[in-house]
Design a protein around this nucleic acid. Structure first.
Length: 582
RNA sequence: GCGCCCGUAGCUCAGUAGGAUAGAGCGGCGGUUUCCUAAACCGCAGGUCACAGGUUCGAAUCCUGUCGGGCGUACCA
């Protein structure tokens, strides 16, 4: 039981109860427990007393004293003190930390309990446009979404990945029109470079109004089931999805072809969506288009802003498709929560989507609809991420470059390492660096991409974490014991550094909970980086293999093993692999 | 015009529900290797948290305004 306990939540629960009673409050009063800001404040601190005192018009320190009277933490804490204006500083019992670490080490889940109330969660992420190859614009959604999937799934939720690929819109009209002009045979070879084919079509679309018209006609033909169009379209899709799976494999991303549910999957539902909106009295015809106007959305000059669900030519738009997807997720998938991992520019679209879905009854208000927004990726110069020639950077080329640079780093430091091994390590480190750098950033801000920074061994980077892991593994290579042979060994915390390490290890569950609640992977990377730092302090002050006694040696090996497994698990949930040696 | 987001050390970024003396990494300066990976670690210097008001025991965090930047704003996705 000790291993399966979230210490912060337990403290929160108990102190909150005592605080509620002490303040004679009707509603529960939160204790607001967080890790102590400074070592002299103990291990955890409760900040909620002052706010409660204000609400109850009491003296905060007097209230804190009353809380202590009603609070029994003797099984968890060796000391609870009132400090400053009314903080409660909590020092945990060292034997509690030791038992928790021992239990975690004996558990394949490292003591993390699965969610008490598992949810069905749709994570809508990656969603590349299949008309062209995946480029850096698809990177953040794919990486962030997949990291969230990893964490949520580990916490026991039922995750339904939805790769809402763009396989159905205007862009395919462009491709079909271009294909039509080139002739099927001539186009065959050019399809191998979908990116170039798309670029040509796009150029014609932008420059030639007749071509643009023709493209739109092809969209209508495609959507109405024209056999030739369908056949060519399927060829585009097959080529493109093949590219995607290649990239996903390279990225070590959990998306499978079964997770693809593209825009085309909702084609048959679109008339019904519009009809439902009409029946709900939400539909208005404006300038020939079918629109939903909501009061809360205003456009230029304060004019009402429509959500257009059907164009004047009868075609449907992505809003329609997204509404259909919403109905599917609510009605067929029965979800509790939907995460839209999309860049922040989609913010208005999603707010409209959520609002219309609720108004139309496509989704229950009980379902949590969340825009997991992120900023744009910029080059090292702070400008949009482009090739030197100004084109978009293909993802596969970006990953090749990362691996190439990682190999340089590995070779420089381990020249004696066999080439094949160095190569394997470089690929893991290179991809890991790209992903970790993205995840370590607060996602809402724009993000400046820098190979040099992400591949640095200093600071909060993948190579640093992977190195921290590899260094621990080397202890086991040097020592006679296998990590597995340590089963049942009790962890003892006699040194401050050992205690600090155990304390950090015990925070994994609260960190994962926070990542899951806020959809913030950088909370986990920050934790891992902090853990690695605390481990280093331990590693430098506490000899492991040359410990004073066999018991201490075994205990420290166990701590090392638990730290390594925590790093491996944490990185793994984020979609980043470790290497045994660097 | 209106809306959303952002502004923290020279640079790149953290900062969890408003909490105690705002933290890392890089770069700069100075140290540490008879010892399990020095690809590491330790120390020093560096801040009007864009600016001005307000809320309160307490504000980088909440509110209002200003400045600066990004994005969005009717038939692309």
């Amino acid at each position: 039981m000790i291993g399966r306990m979230n210490i912060r939540d337990e403290l929160e629960k108990r102190i909150s109860a005592a605080l509620t009673a002490a303040a004679a409050a009707v509603q529960p009063v939160p204790a607001i427990v967080s890790p102590a800001a400074k070592p002299e404040f103990g291990d955890y601190q409760a900040n909620g007393v002052m706010a409660a005192a204000k609400a109850a018009r009491m003296n905060p320190r007097a209230l804190a004293a009353k809380v202590l009277e009603k609070l029994d933490l003797s099984d968890l804490a060796e000391k609870v003190e009132i400090a400053g204006p009314g903080f409660l500083n909590i020092t945990l019992r060292t034997d509690l930390l030791a038992r928790a670490a021992t239990a975690a080490a004996a558990d394949s889940r490292l003591g993390i309990a699965p969610a008490a109330r598992p949810q069905r969660i749709v994570v809508d992420y990656s969603a590349p446009n299949l008309a062209k190859e995946m480029h850096v614009g698809h990177l953040r959604s794919t990486i962030i979404g997949d990291a969230l999937v990893g964490v949520l799934e580990f916490l026991g939720h039922h995750i339904i990945r939805q790769n809402h690929v763009g396989d159905w819109g205007t862009q395919f009209g462009m491709l079909l029109a271009h294909l039509d002009e080139l002739g099927e045979d001539a186009a065959g070879s050019e399809l191998s470079d979908l990116e170039e084919f798309y670029r040509q079509a796009k150029k014609r679309f932008d420059e030639d109004p007749d071509f643009a018209d023709k493209s739109r006609q092809f969209v209508v033909r495609l959507q109405s089931g024209d056999a030739d169009c369908r056949r060519h379209w399927q060829k585009f899709i097959a080529v493109s999805l093949g590219h995607c799976q290649e990239v996903y494999a390279r990225l070590n991303v959990r998306l499978m072809s079964a997770d693809v549910r593209g825009e085309s999957a909702y084609n048959a539902d679109l008339p019904a969506v519009v009809e439902d909106l009409r029946r709900a009295g939400l539909l208005t015809e404006s300038q020939g288009a079918q629109c939903v106007f909501l009061d809360e959305f205003k456009g230029e000059d304060d004019k009402p802003l429509p959500v257009i669900v059907q164009k004047s030519d009868g075609g449907y738009l992505y809003a329609t498709t997204d509404l259909a997807a919403m109905r599917y997720r609510a009605g067929t998938l029965h979800v509790d929560r939907i995460l839209y991992v999309m860049d922040h520019r989609q913010s208005l679209h999603l707010r409209q989507l959520f609002a219309v879905s609720l108004k139309a009854g496509f989704i229950s208000p009980a379902v949590s609809l969340e825009h997991v927004a992120f900023g744009t990726m910029q080059g090292e110069d702070g400008r949009p991420f482009r090739t030197r020639a100004g084109g978009t950077v293909k993802l596969i080329e970006l990953l090749d470059e990362a691996a190439r640079r990682a190999l340089e780093v590995v070779r420089a430091k381990s020249p004696e390492m066999p080439a094949e091994q160095a190569d394997t390590i470089a690929r893991v480190v290179g991809v890991g660096a790209v992903k970790y750098a993205d995840l370590a950033m607060d996602r809402i801000g724009d993000y400046r991409f820098s190979f040099d920074k992400m591949l640095s061994l200093q600071g909060n980077t993948a190579p640093y974490m992977q190195y921290a892991y590899a260094r621990i593994q080397s202890i086991f290579r040097k020592g006679a014991e296998e990590a597995a042979g340590l089963a049942g060994v009790p962890i003892m915390l006699n040194q401050p550094a050992e205690r600090e390490l155990a304390k950090r290890l015990g925070r994994l569950e609260e960190v994962l909970g926070s990542v899951a609640a806020e959809c913030k992977p950088n909370v986990l990377t920050a934790y891992l980086y902090d853990l690695a730092g605390v481990f280093t302090t331990f590693y430098e002050s506490c000899p492991v293999l040359k410990a004073d006694s066999p018991e201490i040696r075994a205990s420290r090996l166990r701590l090392c093993d638990l730290t390594a497994r925590t790093i491996r698990l944490g990185l793994g949930l984020l979609g980043i692999e470790v290497v045994e040696q660097m």
